[in-house]
């Protein structure tokens, strides 16, 4: 199987995830777009492992998943903590660095 379509799909999903991070205001949805980007890279890893004929790519994808899990745990805990105090999950609220 030609790997090029897979890679193109991976790039496309990554881009969509990136645009989503920029456009959405709800913190959790932003987080989900980040997860989408991570998944896209996983796809690329697996494709390349098939191309090269060894399992290092799959191992890498595995590790990405583990780290993504840890990251989601902590990130969502933060969002919950912020939400409890500020009653809002909007990303635009953290604008104290404004000039």
């Amino acid at each position: 199987m030609d790997p090029t379509p897979f890679l193109t799909l991976s790039a496309l999903l990554f881009t969509i995830g990136a645009v989503g991070v920029l456009v959405r205001r709800n913190a959790i949805v932003v987080f989900m777009c980040v997860e989408l980007m991570l998944n896209a890279t996983n796809l690329a890893f697996v494709t390349f492992s098939r191309v090269h004929g060894n399992l290092d790519g799959q191992i890498a994808a595995f590790f990405v998943m583990v780290v993504a899990a840890a990251e989601v745990v902590v990130g969502l805990a933060i969002i919950v903590a912020i939400f409890r105090t500020r009653r809002s999950a909007s990303v635009d609220d953290a604008s104290l660095l404004k000039y």
Binding site: N42, V46, R50, A69, L76, I79
Partner: peptide, 29 residues
């Protein structure tokens, strides 16, 4: 793409655990 292990892990860990975590927090928030 000949990655059955990842196929299973993706469903169990990613969709089943991480995404559910997202949904829980969404409901909290």
């Amino acid at each position: 793409q000949d990655a059955p292990f990842l196929f299973v892990v993706q469903i169990i860990v990613y969709t089943g655990a991480i995404l559910m975590l997202f949904l829980f927090v969404l409901m909290l928030v």
